[in-house]
Design a protein around this nucleic acid. Structure first.
Lengths: 195, 195
DNA sequence: GTCTATAGACTGATAGAC
DNA sequence: GTCTATCAGTCTATAGAC
């Protein structure tokens, strides 16, 4: 693997485990096995590294969502797959989704990176809203819910559940926090006929 | 006001706006108007300050919850008041609940402080679960929900909604994320008779 | 591309005068 | 209780040799 990619991989893990400002070029150099001055060749400023990090992550993340959206399954199954992404990203309670990690350490984030984080949120809500809208249209989800609000609520639930589970390093807290979301998906498609 | 209290007030604001490791004794000294060495007289280690911070905050927070629980109103009203606390704590999208801020910067947190944060979460879930249990008992909330899971979900939703709203410094994102939670409270007490 | 060496600023923390 | 002065350690970042 080339050094640049290796640096991004290590930096991503560090940022997700400890936060953006809690890992340094010195840490990174030690782990990758080069000197910290050499990192500046690949990423002159730490802000460059951060921007590459979130952009690479968003690309990967939304590619996964595209793959999920393309599956010929119910909207509820799409949402279950979305849930699974956040659950897996937790890595047993040791690390957060990069976007959650960066939302958390907002203050020290370079402006463009913060913008990217907010766009990540907006894109996520748009994806979720589309799924909910489909579910309402085909009758598998109740029509009184608002797709946008439900999308925002789902994103907030996942981020909050990750935060709580990681604080205690206990994956079961994530499962507990999202249990009612999942069970609401089950009850819906058996409940009502049209309204 | 005595210096110690003033220090705690300024530190709390700083931690909630920028995070625990993003404010220094130098910042604090500048704001309070004493030298940073003097802060060490009141709080020898920054860990001492952090522990006092979270303990004072938890005391205030759960006193507010006690006051809410004592009101002679419906469980749904109790939950609406709980929601209002998190909404107000956001201060228009500029700062987080201290517990959310500390969950976020977990890595650099002294052990005892992290323990206190996790206890804060557990106590919150217990309080919420009791409210949900009451609502199920009196028939105002549907009986198929699990009080503990619903409590965890509610806490996660509030924390996640705060995180997203603060990232964009936009209170309306909090409102959007919690709208379906609130509307679920409305629909319940008019829907079913016993089951 | 990677290195050594260094700059300049900042961190939490301590010693000791007043 | 607050001060001055200082310490050792960390950080991001740069200059210039190889």
């Amino acid at each position: 693997m080339d050094t640049r990619t290796y640096l991004l991989d290590c930096a991503e893990t560090a940022a997700r485990q400890r936060g953006y400002d809690a890992f340094s070029y010195a840490d990174l150099a030690r782990e990758v096995g080069i000197r910290k001055a050499s990192i500046h060749y690949h990423f002159p400023l730490k802000a460059d590294l951060a921007l590459n990090l979130i952009e690479r992550y968003a690309e990967r993340f939304f590619a996964a969502l595209d793959e999920i959206a393309g599956r010929q399954v119910s909207p509820a199954d799409h949402l279950r797959a979305y849930h699974a992404i956040y659950r897996n990203a937790l890595a047993n309670g040791t690390q957060l989704c990069l976007c959650v990690a960066m939302s958390a350490g907002r203050s020290s984030l370079p402006g463009p990176v913060l913008d990217r984080v907010n766009q990540f949120h907006a894109d996520s809500v748009a994806w979720l809203a589309a799924i909910f809208a489909t579910g309402i249209r085909d009758g598998s989800l109740p029509s009184e819910i608002d797709p946008d609000a439900e999308g925002m609520a789902t994103l907030a639930l996942m981020e909050g559940a990750q935060l709580i589970a990681r604080a205690a390093e206990d994956l079961t807290l994530f499962d507990s926090a999202t249990a009612s979301f999942l069970s609401r998906l089950n009850s819906r498609n058996t409940s009502r006929s049209s309204a």
